[in-house]
């Protein structure tokens, strides 16, 4: 079972990303959903509709925060104001763990608003791990870092992506949000075996799994989150669950979003790969 200190030993099961087009359906119909993942930045505001809606969701559901802009891998220090606002949201949601990406996206105070790939060097691993530790200490909640999809590699890289991931999480003593779709996308774009990646991940640190769809172009695959999960990604997921045990899993669908029922049904396909619960004698 991948219930560990990085996901607060919480058996959350299968969740869905909370998205604006679904809000009225969720608030009116209160569908049974194990948990929702929210994009932290969408709720790091002063007030108004976003926080009011979030409070209504929190009355009914468990929520886990997922961020897109901490940029642990950027060479510049963490933004203190950002951390303060994030901590206020952590207190509001009671998220049992918090995730963001193993990437960079800002330089000299300028933000690209993208999840840019890391050069896989020891210098970068040390800096990234230090920043994850700082954030974890400040936020007082376990952090798990997510592997991103990438379309470019650097000349300066000294190791594979999974070696870099392992170096960072060991140094930071943090969890992993393993995105199996991202592993698949990157494996096609960089010509490696995605199962080599999966087999190298330290099982005890996997806090959560992401699944999603992508778009295939002539020369590369783009992580678009606008399709159902493809069979090769389900195969990776199956392998991951066999290695890590039942793990909190979340489906991301961010563009050309279908109805909530369709998205939820797609997410629940993951159940088929989860180990059956062990019967406990009375």
């Amino acid at each position: 079972m991948s219930f560990n200190r990085f996901n607060a030993f919480s058996g959350y099961g299968i969740g869905v990303g909370l998205r604006v087009p679904h809000l009225s359906h969720i608030l009116e119909n209160k569908p049974v959903v194990n948990w929702f993942e929210i994009i932290s930045e969408n709720y790091m505001v002063g007030g108004g509709r976003p926080l009011a809606v979030l409070d209504r969701i929190l009355e009914q559901y468990q929520v886990v925060q997922h961020g897109v802009s901490l940029y642990f891998g950027s060479a510049e220090p963490l933004n203190r104001e950002h951390l303060k606002r994030l901590k206020a949201l952590v207190r509001r949601t009671g998220t049992p763990w918090l995730t963001d990406h193993l990437c960079w996206g800002s330089v000299d105070g300028r933000y690209t608003h993208d999840l840019l790939p890391m050069p896989y060097t020891m210098e970068a691993a040390r800096l990234t791990a230090r920043k994850v530790r700082q954030a974890q200490d400040f936020l007082e909640v376990p952090i798990a870092v997510e592997n991103v999809s990438s379309y470019a590699g650097f000349h300066v890289s000294e190791m594979t992506e999974w070696e870099f991931l392992n170096e960072v999480v060991e140094r930071a003593d943090c969890g992993i949000l393993l995105d199996v779709n991202n592993i698949y996308v990157s494996s096609r774009n960089h010509d490696f075996d995605p199962f080599d990646y999966l087999n190298a991940v330290p099982a005890a640190r996997v806090a959560q799994i992401h699944i999603a769809g992508h778009s295939r172009f002539e020369k590369y695959i783009l992580d678009t989150h606008d399709h159902p999960v493809v069979p090769p990604v389900w195969k990776l997921y199956e392998h991951a669950i066999r290695r890590f045990g039942a793990t909190p899993t979340l489906l991301e669908w961010d563009d050309r979003i279908p109805s909530f029922r369709e998205v939820h049904a797609e997410a629940l396909k993951a159940e088929k790969y989860m180990p059956a619960p062990v019967a406990v004698p009375a």
């Binding site: 379309y151 470019a152 650097f154 000349h155």
Partner: peptide, 23 residues
């Protein structure tokens, strides 16, 4: 080319262009 490795399908600048267009 000074920063990004090419592969057999995409040149360095084509790989960079994916990020630039996205930005």
């Amino acid at each position: 080319a000074a920063i990004i490795k090419p592969n057999h399908r995409l040149s360095s600048v084509e790989r960079l262009e994916i990020y630039s267009r996205s930005y």
